[in-house]
Amino acid sequence: MKQLTDDEIYRIAQKRVKEKKDFYNHLSVYIVINLMLIGIWAFTGSSYPWFIFPLGGWGIGLIFHFLSVFGFMRDESDWENKEIQKEIGRLKKNL
């Protein structure tokens, strides 16, 4: 298995921090915009809660963004490395 250089480790860490920062920005915009939509709904006196459609649709996208950033859907290379390590362990165990 290939060892990573300090520069490669730094670039990977920098990329992950940027992904987290982008997620938190996305979350902040989601909260602000949806609070505004709820406010508009409340001030117009509308009885039908129409704001749930953008809130829910955008929320689904936000959930997928969260999953991709915080490791549930990491790059295939991470998955491949883990699977390779599992196979190495199985082979060593059986020898």
Rank of each mutant, 00 (worst) to 15 (best):
M1C: 14
Q3S: 10
E8H: 04
Y10D: 10
Y10L: 11
I12M: 05
A13R: 10
A13G: 15
Q14C: 02
Q14L: 07
K15G: 10
V17D: 10
V17R: 08
K20I: 09
K20G: 12
K20A: 09
Y24A: 08
H26W: 02
L27F: 04
L27C: 12
S28I: 12
Y30K: 08
I31V: 10
V32D: 07
I33K: 06
N34Y: 08
I40R: 07
T44W: 03
S46Q: 12
Y48V: 11
P49D: 03
W50L: 00
W50Y: 06
F51P: 00
F51Y: 09
I52S: 02
F53N: 04
P54K: 02
G56K: 05
L62N: 00
I63H: 03
F66A: 00
F70S: 04
F72G: 12
M73H: 07
M73E: 03
D75Q: 02
D75V: 04
D75A: 08
S77F: 05
S77L: 14
W79L: 15
W79Q: 13
W79M: 15
E80A: 14
E83R: 14
Q85S: 12
I88L: 05
I88G: 02
R90I: 09
L91H: 11
L91V: 15
K92N: 11
L95C: 05
